[in-house]
């Protein structure tokens, strides 16, 4: 069982990709690719009771690649990879004499990689598309790094998630818009509790659909069936049974026909054993579908 609060924070907000995904598979031979920088820094977290407690200021900074590519009109391959991840934890300094009580630390490395495959259950062009996605979380990141073993770029477990997406495109006051929702089950290994995940997304196109604004709600509920500090054989420094409800806002702007920039802010408004601070990301994307 090796998953830190900071790493959970990364998972939480990296999964917020509002401009791709959903129930719409990419057409055959068409892809969407995004390179982004994501970061958060937090000095408090939600306890197991959902209350706020302080912690050492901890930061995580990820350079991530997200890609979708249609190998048929119904089947899309998906990759979400943290190409470079940096974890930082602050020095604990005496306010009385200025000495360092506990030295800070940092670690840089490859993060975890998610690979997925999406299948359109409805015919391409359907008014109400439905798709199913299987995602495999590869534990390519490092765990237990740093002098105290409290830095990580991955969770150290191979998880498998199945997700069902449904949505629709529509006009809203003459503007293009879409809405989608999803539900999923995340089976996790290595002593981690399994999870129910669900959420919804709403987007609207402005400036002749050059600018897309979107909002997304993500909820994760733990089944509480994994290890705890009491049952694990190690004196684990990592948390399990994380839960949260998060809200994200994202803007995507097409600078050219296919190339654009994106910015995102997200944060958990309720949670358990998870960072309590907003995360931010900026990125550039290439959309072959335009």
């Amino acid at each position: 069982m090796k998953k830190s609060i900071i790493y959970i924070a990364a998972i939480l907000f990296l999964s917020t990709s509002v401009f791709a995904g959903g129930p719409w598979p990419q057409p055959k031979g068409v892809g969407y690719f995004k390179l982004s920088e994501w970061w958060t820094s937090f000095d408090q977290h939600f306890t197991d009771e959902g209350l706020l407690d302080p912690n050492s200021t901890t930061g995580i900074y990820n350079t991530a690649f997200y890609g979708e590519y249609g190998i048929s009109n119904r089947v899309t391959l998906i990759a979400n990879a943290n190409l470079f991840s940096r974890n930082v934890i602050n020095n604990q300094v005496s306010g009385t004499n200025g000495s360092i009580i506990i030295p800070g630390d940092s670690y840089n490395g490859l993060g975890d990689i998610d690979l997925g495959i999406k299948y359109g259950l409805t015919a391409p062009g359907s008014k109400y598309p439905v798709a199913i996605t299987a995602t495999f979380g590869l534990p390519t990141g490092a765990t237990n790094e740093g002098a105290l073993g409290n830095l990580a770029t991955g969770d150290g477990e191979f998880n498998q998630m199945i997700q069902l997406d449904a949505g629709t495109g529509f006009k809203l006051g003459g503007l293009n818009a879409y809405a989608s929702a999803y539900g999923g089950f995340n089976h996790r290994t290595n002593g981690f509790s399994e999870e129910i995940r669900f959420g919804a997304e709403l987007g609207i196109g402005l400036l002749d659909s050059k600018l897309w604004l979107a909002t997304k709600l993500n909820v994760v509920e733990s089944l509480q069936n994994g290890d705890t500090a009491e049952t694990t054989t190690s004196t684990s420094i990592f948390a399990n049974n994380t839960e949260y409800s998060s809200f994200a806002l994202e803007a995507n702007y097409y600078v050219t026909k296919r190339v654009g920039v994106s910015a995102n802010v997200a944060g958990a408004f309720t949670g358990a054993i998870i960072a309590a601070a907003p995360s931010y990301s900026v990125g550039i994307f290439y959309d072959m579908g335009k």
């Binding site: 970061w39 900074y61 020095n91 604990q92 800070g104 940092s106």
Partner: peptide, 30 residues
């Protein structure tokens, strides 16, 4: 396109600058 890449590099650089190990002050006077 160049402007986009420059924007991204600048953003990543700025974020990296902010990612150094800092100090948390502990109220430890007794």
């Amino acid at each position: 396109m160049k402007q986009i890449i420059h924007f991204f590099i600048l953003a990543v650089f700025s974020i990296s600058l902010a990612s150094c190990v800092g100090d948390d002050i502990v109220n430890d006077r007794v």
